[in-house]
Design a protein around this nucleic acid. Structure first.
Lengths: 149, 149
DNA sequence: AACTAATCCTACTAATTCAATAGAATAAAT
DNA sequence: ATTTATTCTATTGAATTAGTAGGATTAGTT
């Protein structure tokens, strides 16, 4: 399960991606209201995304946040890793949050691990090719599909 | 991330699958020691698996647990669901633990949900075709690969 | 019948992680 | 100066997960 933090991070970035062309900083409170994300929690999340190079910030009046890269260059796997969510279903197959199972006698011959490794690969394949732009495109597609446009 | 409970459940069932042919009940303490799973915790897990039809139990002296089905018929997705772990990365795409996102205006046009749906499908595809037998076969394969046999 | 070895059941507690909040410091625009 | 923002540090609350305790029940053995 994705943490709320990760979900909020993704939603906030999608919201910023929508206005990427404006090149005008967007305030925390604006995103918070639009996406219904608790103000102070979002604040912490955005700082973290900035520290990891996904956002630029501007302080003071008329300040706010901007994507640091083109929406095509920001992919889901990266966002999830920054916002603290391991992607793998077991620590022993995680690239970024690796930990051995205490009880495992021989990790390299563990059948369960082998399966979960496959799951991770399938998951990463999708998440690392899906950018903010892709998500926006999907939304357009879905709106058309449901005749909402 | 899989909970420890789920992981323990899977490991316990694999351990039972190895002795499936014996048709002799296996004691909790035996499994607990072999797999290094806390005794009392395992107890609760096995009862749940039994209540959900994956195990048969026999009380009293010489009692213990047996798989209720052939190891080929017990698949990972089922074990994980019983032991409480949702498989999907978001509640809004979960079949068995569905919950809408409070903040979502229109779920059916949510681009993020659409991607996560794809991830879930890829995951379930693997987990629901992998049985206890498959895992044992993988272990054999891995042992050969690493010349441990 | 008594004894022993096992699961079963109910309840509780501990530990960890997740989610959210408070409040003052700093920066920039007017 | 004043206002409008982000930034930083610290703390709290809530929920979930992990694990424990102890007695009731069942069945085999002598």
């Amino acid at each position: 399960m994705l943490s709320k933090k990760s979900k909020y991070a993704i939603k906030a970035l999608i919201s910023l991606a929508k206005r990427y062309e404006n090149k005008v900083p967007v305030k925390i409170s604006e995103i918070s209201e639009e996406e219904k994300i608790p103000r102070k929690f979002l604040e912490a999340i955005l700082v973290e995304l900035r520290n990891n190079g996904l956002l630029h910030s501007k302080m003071g009046a008329n300040g706010g946040y901007l994507l640091a890269k083109h929406p095509e260059e920001i992919v889901l796997s990266h966002i999830i890793r920054i916002s603290g969510g391991p992607i793998a279903m077991l620590p022993c197959v995680s690239l970024n949050f690796y930990e051995p199972c205490e009880e495992c006698v021989n990790e390299s011959t563990c059948g369960l691990r082998d399966v979960i490794l496959e799951v991770r690969e399938a998951t990463i394949r999708i998440l690392s090719k899906t950018s903010l732009s892709d998500i926006l495109q999907r939304e357009e597609g879905l709106k058309k599909k449901f005749n909402l446009i």
